[in-house]
């Protein structure tokens, strides 16, 4: 009887846990000192402050001040506060005043704050 009781409780705990993981967004934060050569991929959210040579892909990407990406950045929503040298592709792109961009930008909606330094080709696609 005691065993049966405990096995009844366990699923309850498990379902609560499952429910929590379903409702929360997987958020990855990569700090300043991280250096990546290769590709970085996530299904939800990346806060990136490091250096990357290669590709970065996610649903939402925040390239923080001081970050540097040489290569390709692909996401639904990208906020750029750092430096990018390469191709950027997103539905929504927010370029902040601290951003420095060189390369190609493919977008559906773009928002640029003054102060940013952009030397790039822009491609609008609906």
């Amino acid at each position: 009887m005691a065993l049966f009781g405990s096995s009844e409780k366990k699923p309850e705990v498990k379902t609560d846990f499952m429910f929590d993981t379903d409702s929360t967004i997987n958020q990855s934060t990569l700090a300043k000192d991280i250096k990546i050569n290769g590709s970085l991929e996530s299904t939800d959210y990346i806060d990136f402050s490091g250096h990357l040579t290669g590709t970065i892909k996610s649903q939402t990407i925040n390239l923080k001040p001081g970050s540097y990406v040489k290569g390709t950045v692909t996401a639904d929503t990208i906020t750029i506060e750092g430096e990018v040298d390469g191709d950027i592709q997103a539905k929504d792109i927010y370029i902040k005043s601290t951003a420095k961009i060189k390369g190609n930008i493919r977008y559906q909606n773009i928002d640029i704050q003054n102060g940013s330094i952009i030397n790039a080709d822009l491609f609008y696609s609906s």
Binding site: K102, I110, D111, I112, N114, G115, N119, A120, L122, Y124
Partner: peptide, 22 residues
Amino acid sequence: SLQVSYGARIQGTLRHRGSVQS
């Protein structure tokens, strides 16, 4: 100095004055 509002359509090349063009 450039400010672009969300929704604007730009197709072409952006060049920042003062940047050393490569």
